[in-house]
Design a protein around this nucleic acid. Structure first.
Lengths: 315, 315
DNA sequence: TTAATTAATAAATAATATCAATAGCTTTTA
DNA sequence: TAAAAGCTATTGATATTATTTATTAATTAA
């Protein structure tokens, strides 16, 4: 049994297809076939049920895959340990970012980071929280930036910053009089929200829920971007909430529509999250330090109340 | 990096000597030299400081060894998983037993076990508790039978049975009148004990300690075997306590010197103990079932009070 | 039925692990 | 201090192993 063989098994188990797995592992398909056969022979078991299309894991194969994941992960950490000792920070690093953070945060730290750590090949992907969790767990992402807490025991979180919500209220709206608004003022019925799947939407729903019950049906207008929401608000179709960093970006003539909350302002917690196996920790630490450093200057609120980004099942 | 290379590193790290490690791993010394060099080259580190005699681990080598142990352990568990699936129980199994259990318990279950699991090659070694713990942790023992609880977080315990202490009191002794004795009757000053290093000795000291304080100096007579102790007692040099199973073995004409305790009788907890990594669990389960089954008939006490086998530091 | 996929097999080759023999170094012994 | 012993690295030969290309066999889709 070799680590390579275990890697091959994992690749086939993942893609349910020898040919595809062979591509992903940068060997030919017969190599996979033979090495996996050899392992099966050595252990005297069948790992895959090749009669099924697509191929399936046998019972024992399933157990073996669980253990193989451990072993491959632990073996990868050896390089990690060595890198740490050498102070080397580099290699490919796949980072996921949720859509409501991507456009504002990325420009703030990216240049900084790639200058400081030129050997790291950052691959950034915009994904919603659900997809991020899935990919962190199966190892397709090394880390991600998302709203927390997620309360997932297999994912670790390192808080980056707390980002307050800011009201964007058209001049015709009843709340436009108030200089600063309160949570209690919010009415879910005239709130314009991002479309389903965005945790920022869920956060706002949680926020309003604390005041009164609601029914899903109420929302009619939903958009995938804040730009659209702002335009809809300008048309007098309701109000919306923006994350603080986004509120810094809007046009000057729209700035007087911005209304901060009275303390404690509702806010989202934004964290760097990663698999609890803690692979590539040096890069994660480096990212954390860079981002937290850059944001520290931009966000200077003290008194905030954290709103959960997790959708609460209404049952 | 291969699992084999990691094994080689572990062997050299353990024996601090390439030649010896080569013997233990059943390869020649150049094989070790080359494979370890290759790994060092691949990781671009030095694992061993070869200038020191005997050879030493470098800092990074030390960290690598820790991780290598994980990986090798986890990889061994794959065979374990496969065996479990197949219901196969076999292979080499190294069992440690403390001296005060060895002669009485072993004959009770050994025949039974080797008949039931002929494919298991049991290697049994008599060791004191301290040595057992050390060897369980470094993997030189697969399991052991000892008095518990040990309160070691890296060692798991499965209780086999509770074995009461039985007083062995000469006819000339003040306590020989009483049919059944009590803990409160015990006087550490006329108690004959096994020599230092036996947990049974520590257990009795703990037992007496609950009544009054003592000083180490009081013990003059110490022996390595119960046979000697019994003879000394017969000479009127004091009394002693025997583990129940041992009390079954003594000569007929000495049997009237045996005095059980009133309920709750002090007792030791005897357990099958093993590394928390839970390798070779099928064999451990098999051993546990066999021993517990055999002993169930022999020991039928209900009401016992467990005495800790751990030496209490007097400070 | 034909074409397209997909995994297994075969044969050749490249890469690798291992060994016996020995060199080179250090420590111990005489 | 020279000789012996002990230890690791190196060399060169050999056996084993992983990988590749080419091909076959089996299944699925058109």
């Amino acid at each position: 049994m070799t680590i390579t063989q275990l890697r091959y098994v994992l690749a086939v188990a993942e893609h349910k297809n020898f040919t595809k797995a062979a591509e992903k592992t940068f060997v030919t398909q017969p190599t996979l076939s033979m090495q996996i056969q050899k392992l099966e022979e050595e252990l005297d078991i069948l790992i895959f049920d090749r009669s099924k299309k697509p191929i399936e894991l046998t019972d024992i194969g399933n157990k073996l895959v669980q253990q193989a994941k451990n072993i491959v992960n632990e073996s990868e950490r050896i390089q990690d340990i060595v890198d740490q000792q050498k102070g080397f920070i580099g290699g490919e690093f796949k980072l996921g970012v949720i859509p409501t953070i991507m456009p504002t945060l990325l420009p703030m730290f990216l240049n900084n980071f790639i200058k400081k750590y030129p050997k790291v090949k950052l691959k950034i992907e915009e994904l919603n929280t659900e997809a991020i969790i899935e990919r962190l767990l199966d190892g397709h992402l090394d880390a991600a930036i998302a709203a927390t807490p997620l309360e997932n025991e297999n994912i670790k979180e390192r808080v980056l910053y707390y980002e307050p919500f800011v009201g964007y209220i058209p001049s015709v709206h009843r709340l436009n009089q108030k200089k600063k608004i309160d949570i209690i003022d919010l009415d879910i019925d005239d709130m314009l929200l991002l479309e389903d799947g965005h945790c920022f939407r869920d956060g706002i729903i949680n926020l309003c829920k604390t005041k009164k019950s609601y029914e899903e049906d109420h929302f009619q207008l939903e958009s995938g971007s804040f730009e659209t929401l702002i335009k809809l608000v300008n048309e007098g179709l309701g109000m919306t909430l923006l994350p603080y960093l986004h509120s810094l970006d809007i046009k000057d003539n729209e700035k007087n529509n911005l209304h901060h909350f009275n303390d404690p302002s509702p806010a989202r917690e934004v964290s760097l999250i990663f698999n609890k196996n803690e692979l590539k920790m040096q890069i994660i630490e480096a990212l954390h330090a860079t981002i937290a450093g850059v944001v520290k200057g931009a966000i200077t609120f003290q008194n905030v109340e954290i709103i959960s980004p997790i959708k609460i099942k209404s049952d």
